Amino acid sequence: MNVLLVHAHPEPTSVTRHLVDTASEVLAAQGHHVMESDLYGMGWKAVFDGQDFPERTNEDRLSFIEESGHAFANGCQTTDVEGEQRKLQAADAVILVFPLWWYSMPAIMKGWIDRVWAFGLAYGYRGAGNAYRYGEGGFAGKRALLAVSVGGPEKDYSPRGINGPLEQLLFPITHGTLFFPGMQVLPTFAVYGSAGIEPGRMAEATAAWKRRLERLFDDEPIPFRPQNGGDYPDCHVLADHVAPGLTGLLAHIADAPQFGSDVEGS
């Protein structure tokens, strides 16, 4: 299989970089072909702006949807974006490895998503508006996994922890960024207390990470409800008989009571 590792941390001795190096070794040893996008090492342009569209269709007003769709359809995207899209399209699985900064991914990784997730590929698929999303789309058939280094202790991210459950904090990424264009998203792998982690605990985390990598193509994904599976009759709102009385993020997960139970801490 082809696996794309996308990572964002400027420090080579960071927990993030350790997870990346471990993943590269384990996956290669299993016979997979590993591709990497080291966003800091690449000097990735994080800002999504008019410079992303060398051949504008409208010079008077910048419409990202219009310009992105035109650039993707006509082969006039910037070379860095095209290169990352080629990696994505070749990948059977995508692993995003990053530190949790202010409850989300670093800005440079968000900028990678903003620029690479083009109209016509990640959204607006087949020119059909929102017909193919949440379980279908340009990335259907691919697996996705987040590997996150978290500075705080695991109890802060427990079901009643002060920061909120990690999987719910990451819902905009797992459900929005990854499941929206069709990826099957695995439960997040997390290393808690990563700030100043002791060698013994790092060894435990590494062993747990290796086990997760070995099951990359076997583990069950988070059971997000697909848009076109019948739970959303109008493709917008859950049917009354689906998860009655349940609202918010968990309503969109078929196995909500167990959601987040597979997150691994160290």
Rank of each mutant, 00 (worst) to 15 (best):
Tyr125Arg: 00
Ala122Glu: 10
Gly124Asn: 04
Glu136Tyr: 03
Ala122Gly: 12
Ala118Pro: 08
Gly127Asn: 09
Ala140Ser: 14
Leu145Pro: 14
Glu136Asn: 02
Arg126Trp: 03
Ala147Arg: 02
Tyr125Asn: 00
Phe119Asn: 14
Ala118Tyr: 03
Leu146Pro: 15
Arg115Met: 07
Trp117Tyr: 15
Phe139Trp: 14
Phe139Leu: 11
Gly127Thr: 05
Ala144Tyr: 05
Tyr132Val: 01
Arg115Ile: 07
Gly124Leu: 00
Gly137Met: 06
Tyr132Trp: 09
Trp117Val: 05
Leu121Thr: 00
Ala144Val: 05
Arg133Met: 04
Arg115Lys: 10
Arg126Thr: 01
Asn130Cys: 04
Arg143Leu: 05
Gly127Trp: 02
Ala128Gly: 01
Asn130Met: 06
Arg126Leu: 07
Ala122Ser: 15
Val148Glu: 02
Val116Tyr: 03
Glu136Trp: 00
Leu145Gln: 15
Leu121Pro: 01
Arg115Gln: 07
Ala131Leu: 09
Val148His: 01
Leu121Lys: 05
Gly124Thr: 02
Ala122Ile: 08
Leu146Arg: 10
Leu121Ala: 11
Leu145Met: 12
Tyr125His: 13
Phe119Thr: 13
Ala131Thr: 09
Ala131Trp: 04
Phe119Gly: 01
Gly141Cys: 08
Gly137Lys: 04
Gly129Ser: 09
Tyr134Gly: 06
Arg133His: 09
Tyr134Leu: 10
Ala147Phe: 07
Gly127Asp: 05
Ala122Thr: 09
Ala140Leu: 04
Ala147Pro: 12
Tyr134Gln: 12
Ala128Thr: 10
Gly138Asp: 08
Leu121Gly: 00
Ala118Met: 15
Phe139Arg: 02
Gly120Asn: 10
Val116Ser: 10
Phe119Cys: 07
Glu136Phe: 01
Arg115Pro: 14
Ala122Asn: 09
Leu121Tyr: 15
Ala147Thr: 07
Trp117Thr: 05
Ala131Ile: 00
Ala128Asn: 10
Glu136Pro: 01
Arg143His: 08
Val116Arg: 07
